[in-house]
Computed example of a mutant assay.
Amino acid sequence: MAGNAKSANELLQSALQRQLNRDSLGAAQDYRRVLEVDARNKNAWYGLGIIDQQDGRTADARANFEKALEIDPHFMSALYSEAYMLRSSDPDRAVELLKRAAATNPKAATIHLQLGQLLAARGRKSEAGDAFRRAVAVDHKLLSQVPEEFRDAVSR
């Protein structure tokens, strides 16, 4: 089993390096090889999701992010990436994912900011105000990114 873990880690490193070198086909092959060794490797599922997202295969990307989240429901990268991808096509699902991400890491100011922006766009002003307040409470520098209509309430 230790040999399998080492092999999976080596393959993950190779996949990441290939992604950095813009070799998405090679990276995807490495991620699939990781999954042959360890079908519950959230990082491999996530990596495949990123490649699919970059290549415009949003349904495949979403399925891969969901597989990563089945393994680890609190996997911040998968929560955020899927939410970001769905912000236009399925904003309600994006809100749900950002709320999970914010609950997972309450100190993630940018997650609260993104959640506030999405809620404000959906007309959910009270919830948006709460999210903006949390973002600014964690990082006051984000106040300049809060929409004007929320700034007074947030800065109090």
Rank of each mutant, 00 (worst) to 15 (best):
residue 22 R to S: 11
residue 88 S to L: 15
residue 59 A to K: 14
residue 50 I to Q: 06
residue 52 D to S: 11
residue 95 V to S: 05
residue 94 A to M: 12
residue 64 N to K: 15
residue 61 A to H: 05
residue 23 D to I: 01
residue 43 N to F: 09
residue 31 Y to Q: 01
residue 53 Q to L: 09
residue 77 S to T: 07
residue 87 R to T: 13
residue 81 S to T: 10
residue 27 A to T: 00
residue 48 L to S: 04
residue 71 I to K: 01
residue 82 E to I: 08
residue 29 Q to I: 12
residue 28 A to R: 06
residue 83 A to Y: 04
residue 77 S to I: 02
residue 81 S to E: 12
residue 91 P to T: 11
residue 75 F to W: 09
residue 26 G to F: 00
residue 47 G to T: 00
residue 75 F to R: 02
residue 30 D to S: 11
residue 60 D to N: 12
residue 79 L to F: 08
residue 41 N to V: 07
residue 45 W to F: 08
residue 61 A to Q: 05
residue 81 S to L: 04
residue 62 R to D: 15
residue 34 V to P: 00
residue 76 M to E: 10
residue 62 R to L: 13
residue 72 D to L: 02
residue 22 R to M: 11
residue 29 Q to K: 12
residue 30 D to N: 09
residue 63 A to E: 09
residue 48 L to D: 03
residue 88 S to T: 15
residue 92 D to G: 10
residue 78 A to V: 03
residue 57 R to A: 07
residue 63 A to F: 06
residue 91 P to R: 10
residue 38 D to V: 03
residue 80 Y to N: 06
residue 77 S to A: 14
residue 91 P to S: 09
residue 65 F to A: 02
residue 24 S to Y: 02
residue 76 M to N: 07
residue 55 D to V: 10
residue 40 R to H: 10
residue 35 L to P: 05
residue 89 S to P: 11
residue 26 G to E: 01
residue 39 A to W: 07
residue 75 F to H: 12
residue 56 G to D: 08
residue 57 R to T: 03
residue 32 R to Q: 10
residue 40 R to N: 13
residue 62 R to N: 15
residue 40 R to Q: 12
residue 60 D to G: 04
residue 68 A to H: 02
residue 71 I to W: 00
residue 60 D to Q: 14
residue 96 E to V: 12
residue 19 Q to I: 06
residue 25 L to P: 00
residue 38 D to N: 11
residue 95 V to I: 12
residue 31 Y to C: 01
residue 65 F to L: 05
residue 79 L to N: 04
residue 96 E to S: 14
residue 67 K to Q: 14
residue 96 E to F: 11
residue 54 Q to G: 14
residue 88 S to A: 15
residue 52 D to Q: 09
residue 26 G to N: 00
residue 57 R to L: 08
residue 83 A to V: 08
residue 50 I to W: 03
residue 42 K to T: 06
residue 95 V to G: 04
residue 50 I to A: 05
residue 66 E to Q: 15
residue 66 E to M: 11
residue 38 D to Q: 05
residue 83 A to M: 08
residue 88 S to Q: 15
residue 86 L to P: 05
residue 30 D to W: 00
residue 31 Y to V: 03
residue 37 V to T: 10
residue 21 N to S: 14
residue 89 S to N: 13
residue 31 Y to P: 01
residue 19 Q to H: 09
residue 79 L to T: 02
residue 49 G to V: 04
residue 49 G to H: 02
residue 53 Q to F: 06
residue 62 R to G: 13
residue 55 D to H: 14
residue 75 F to L: 07
residue 20 L to S: 11
residue 92 D to C: 05
residue 20 L to M: 11
residue 83 A to N: 06
residue 91 P to V: 10
residue 32 R to W: 01
residue 73 P to W: 01
residue 77 S to R: 13
residue 41 N to C: 10
residue 59 A to S: 15
residue 58 T to G: 01
residue 71 I to Y: 01
residue 39 A to F: 09
residue 46 Y to W: 07
residue 52 D to R: 05
residue 62 R to H: 13
residue 88 S to Y: 14
residue 59 A to C: 09
residue 68 A to T: 03
residue 21 N to M: 13
residue 65 F to S: 02
residue 89 S to F: 13
residue 86 L to Q: 09
residue 45 W to H: 15
residue 77 S to L: 13
residue 30 D to I: 00
residue 62 R to M: 14
residue 70 E to R: 07
residue 91 P to C: 08
residue 95 V to Q: 05
residue 36 E to R: 11
